[in-house]
């Protein structure tokens, strides 16, 4: 006992400060953050930085490029196919997101009612989300096939049309078709997230509103919708981001055709960079998506800010 008691004050000062460091919350916090920071750096910051850098070079596959400033962007500025892809992306995102929101909210409201086999229906709704995108895209590819389309076949059998519909060969049809496929895939996410939001609304609020004389539409308008807005903001931000950056569906169904009518910025970027070999130009297209995505994120940032009624004293 006496030995150890003597040794404590005599301990070397470096060990003393090391153990003090280990108990310092700031130092510890930094240590714990390191692995996550390393991951972010290697898998997020580096690729993003590399992408941005490539956009300023004339790199091709198999040949490292040199810095060319904004030349890639100047080329894109005059490239009508790039502008077409911007238009396509905005059209695709707007129409698909609006449809996903409308149909998803409707589905969520239905699933929130007292239905028989409720759990079964909720599980079914998730199916399109669970199936790998490429698989469902291939299924849609068959559904939209010029010769063997089941839709064309059914409509001909019913007698509504005489010849097969050219789903993916006509510009307008192709755009509508890929949007439909995207909506089918995206609805479950919106519906289930909004359903979760609906279930956080206490039933007594609806009862109170019923007693206050509200019809079911008025209850939706004055209770459900305002209380759901924070969740709608989150869900729709994600939905818009997913849709804007969509690649797989388009690439499997149309590869951007016909006549680039369904080329999105993501698919065009890939097209130019990998099969086309122009890594620098492809990277520039990808970088050009950033302002749009930032706008969506900013929109959600302001949309997500806690509303006045959500602030203030806790219980």
């Amino acid at each position: 006992m006496s030995v150890s008691a003597d040794s404590i004050p005599a301990a070397p000062s470096s060990r003393w400060s090391l153990s003090r460091l280990a108990h310092d919350h700031n130092v510890l916090g930094l240590l714990f953050l390191l692995p996550a920071a390393a991951f972010l750096l290697v898998f997020l910051t580096y690729p993003l930085g590399l992408g941005v850098w490539l956009g300023f070079t004339d790199t091709r596959i198999g040949r490292s490029g040199v810095f060319i400033g904004l030349e890639n962007y100047q080329l894109l500025w005059e490239d009508h196919i790039f502008w077409l892809s911007v238009f396509n992306t905005i059209l695709y995102t707007t129409v698909a997101s609006a449809l996903k929101f409308g149909l998803g909210l409707w589905l969520a409201l239905l699933l929130n009612e007292r239905l028989p086999f409720k759990a079964f229906f909720r599980a079914i709704v998730l199916l399109p989300w669970v199936v790998p995108t490429v698989l469902s895209a291939i299924a849609f590819w068959w559904i939209y096939d010029a010769q063997f389309s089941i839709i064309s076949w059914a409509l001909i059998e019913i007698g509504l049309i005489d010849s097969n519909i050219n789903f993916l060969g006509d510009a307008t049809n192709a755009r509508a078709s890929v949007i439909a496929a995207n909506v089918w895939r995206g609805i479950p996410f919106v519906a289930i997230s909004l359903l979760a939001g609906l279930q956080t609304i206490p039933p007594s609020l609806h009862e109170a509103a019923t007693l206050d004389g509200a019809s079911s539409w008025q209850r939706f308008r004055h209770i459900t919708l305002p209380m759901l807005t924070p969740i709608i903001a989150v869900v729709m931000t994600f939905s818009v981001l997913f849709t804007f950056t969509d690649f797989q569906l388009i690439y499997v169904l149309t590869r951007g055709g016909p006549l680039n009518a369904t080329h999105l910025m993501a698919t065009l970027s890939f097209q130019r960079a990998i099969p086309g070999g122009q890594l620098g130009e492809g990277a520039a297209i990808a970088v050009a998506m950033i302002p749009f995505l930032l706008a969506a994120i900013l929109f959600s940032y302001f949309g997500l800010q806690r509303r006045r009624w959500q602030q203030g004293g806790a219980d």
Binding site: P202, L211, D212, H222
Partner: peptide, 28 residues
């Protein structure tokens, strides 16, 4: 319920969280 001319106070009060006190009272 709305035609019974009754008013109810709930255990959890069931106040509409997104409305001010005045709006809560004025809702009906």
């Amino acid at each position: 319920p709305k035609e019974r001319d009754i008013a109810m106070v709930f255990q959890n009060y069931a106040l509409y969280p997104h409305m001010t006190v005045a709006d809560n009272m004025a809702f009906s």
